[in-house]
Amino acid sequence: MKPTYKALLIDLSGVLYVGDEPIPEAVTTLEKLRSMDLVLRFVTNTATQNHQNIITKLHKMGYKIDSQELFTAPIAAKQYIKANNLRPFCLIHEALKEDFSELDQHQPNCILLGDAREQLNYRTLNKAFQLCMAGSLLIGIGKNKYFKDKQGLMLDAGAFIHALEWAANTQAIIMGKPSYTFFTQAVRSTTFSPKECLMIGDDVESDVIGAMNAGLGGCLVRSGKYQVGDDKKLPATAHIIDSFSRLMSML
């Protein structure tokens, strides 16, 4: 039977892998999905690796993914900054700095905040706060609360963005999930309508609810950052599966 959905938007961390280890049976599941002629997009807020490094990491795990299938929040943020002739104060991970080095960063009039890890300290956050108070735009690569790594649950950039919004009485522009704009851009790249696209993720709010608010179907995976009780937050029409390997039976 042909699936209702014609395109799948698939989260990476927590769905296809955790840390450097692929989710069991996920590689073979992805191969089966490709045999169904589904359009695939791999969407991520990952802000600790550049585009090519993400592709390389996936290839090493055995996933066959083309570069044009990867849709990342950092690239969306860079396009937004360039289109609006902004000069960012970049609070981003070291791995992304080369990708943003071509941008004019003198006398910044916006703040770009991502998962900068140890650089998210009082000195840098206070500078971001001062820029916000002076009227600069606050741009978030994503607004996830936390993620799961091999070290366990890890605090993500969303907590720091929320703190700046509250302290400076401002509203951040979010380039990644759960942004309506981000999902709309990802859907547009598939040539299908939102209702023909299914988002699969382990984050009930950023992945599933965010996608469904943009008109997509949503599927929560009980892996990665999934927590007991997340099921109760889901809209009635959402799907839920135990792992990515169970997606075939759902479709």
Rank of each mutant, 00 (worst) to 15 (best):
L9I: 15
L9V: 14
S13F: 04
G14W: 00
V15N: 08
V15M: 03
D20E: 15
P22N: 10
P22S: 04
I23Y: 03
E25L: 11
L33S: 00
L38H: 11
V39D: 09
F42N: 01
F42W: 05
V43M: 13
N45Y: 02
T46V: 10
A47N: 09
Q49M: 14
N50A: 05
H51V: 01
Y63Q: 01
Y63R: 00
S67T: 14
A73I: 10
P74V: 06
A76W: 01
Q79M: 14
I81H: 01
K82S: 08
F89Y: 15
C90E: 09
C90S: 15
L96V: 09
S101C: 13
S101H: 11
L103F: 06
D104I: 06
Q107E: 13
N109A: 07
N109P: 03
L113K: 03
Q119P: 00
L120A: 04
N121I: 14
L125E: 05
K127E: 07
C132R: 02
A134W: 12
L137D: 02
L138H: 08
K143E: 01
K143M: 08
N144Q: 09
K145S: 10
F147E: 03
F147Y: 15
K150E: 15
Q151K: 12
Q151G: 13
M154Q: 15
M154Y: 09
G158Q: 04
A159F: 09
F160G: 02
W166P: 05
W166A: 12
W166L: 14
A168E: 04
N169I: 07
N169S: 12
G176L: 08
G176Y: 01
P178T: 10
S179T: 07
F182R: 07
F182E: 07
T184A: 14
S193Q: 12
C197Y: 08
G201S: 08
V204Q: 01
S206L: 07
V208R: 15
I209K: 07
G210R: 02
L216Y: 04
L216D: 00
C219H: 00
L220H: 01
R222Q: 13
D231G: 11
K232R: 13
K232S: 14
K233L: 14
L234S: 10
A238C: 14
I241A: 13
D242L: 08
S245R: 05
R246L: 11
S249H: 11
M250R: 15
L251F: 09
